[in-house]
Amino acid sequence: MIKCIATDMDGTLLNGKMEVSEQNIQAVKEAQAQGIEVVVATGRSYAEARYALDQADIHCPMICANGAEVRNVSGEVINNAFIEKETAARIFQALKEIGLYFEIHTAEGTFTDDYEKALDIMVNIFLTAHSEIPQDQIREAAKIRFTKGLLQLVDSYEEVIHKEDMVVYKFLAFSFEQEKLDKAREQLSLIHDLAISSSGSENIEITHLDAQKGVALEHFIKEKGIVFEETMAIGDNFNDVSMLQRVGFPVAMGNADPEVKTLCNYVTATNDEHGVAAVIERFIGVKNHENFS
């Protein structure tokens, strides 16, 4: 019997337009109505994740920044795992020397030191999935990260890293040059107690070793008196692997990376075909859905 469902956001709960479909909304709410604990496990910061869930009127606990922060349904932090300042400084220097654009996720929000680069990255990523949408329209949508305070501009990352009492959760580095990402992985793998993953082919995510979705989910369900055998996890990329490998019901999205699919017992529909709703309907008995295997 499934007592907990942990779902990723981007590429999973969210469709290609970065929205939660009505089908997914209803499936999540019906699962909750049946007493099933639904938790969102995302690489996003709390603010960015909460923004998308508020639009869908979904209220649930959240595992944010790949497990660096866990919040209850009221938004209170109940657990976290952060990067020490000395380590954060080493990561910063390595990424800077390689020439990667990156953002820093902290307990006080997400920061960038390059406004235009932040917009360009989001536009290029979105265009790969939605080339039919005018670029200027996508760019205006990308500006929401700044206007809503989801991404904050700073003059220098040093002021973030070295600020007293600043808690650094994650570095998110982007590049469409695979060689640079590979070089960053190689160099950062030499630093003790780091987890290096990705949520897409164009990025790498660097967190503390304990800041992984699977680790955070383990702590979360233990507090609820739930075991992994009673837990479903749904994801599409490598930052989901730590939880997919642990749970009794690992589900890959239809749009998941092929390697991720091999780790799962089940494959559902794509994120644009309401794959989360499909798998919930299949296992929770809400109703039948064709897009599931």
Rank of each mutant, 00 (worst) to 15 (best):
I161E: 04
A184E: 09
K148H: 13
H219F: 11
I144L: 08
S201A: 13
I191M: 13
A142W: 00
I161D: 03
A129E: 12
E177V: 08
E164W: 04
F228P: 00
E177W: 00
A233L: 08
K222L: 07
L151I: 02
D136Y: 05
P134A: 03
G200I: 04
K163W: 03
Y157A: 08
F176Q: 09
S175Q: 05
G214R: 02
G200E: 06
Y169S: 06
S198C: 14
L194Y: 10
I221S: 02
Q178A: 09
D136I: 07
D136F: 04
I125L: 11
L181C: 13
K148N: 10
H219K: 13
K183W: 02
E179M: 03
F176D: 10
A233M: 07
Y169A: 04
L244N: 10
L153G: 05
Q152T: 07
D193A: 12
Q152V: 00
L181D: 08
Q178W: 06
K143I: 02
D193M: 11
L194I: 06
L209Q: 13
K180Q: 13
I191P: 04
A216Q: 08
I133P: 04
S242Q: 02
E159H: 11
S197N: 13
A173T: 06
L209H: 13
S198V: 11
A233G: 05
G225K: 10
E223L: 10
Q135Y: 00
S242G: 06
D165H: 15
L150Q: 11
Q135L: 08
Q178K: 14
G200P: 01
A195K: 04
L172F: 14
H208S: 14
I206H: 06
F238P: 01
A216S: 15
S199H: 03
H219V: 10
L194W: 10
Y169L: 10
E218C: 02
F174P: 01
V167R: 15
A129N: 12
K224Y: 05
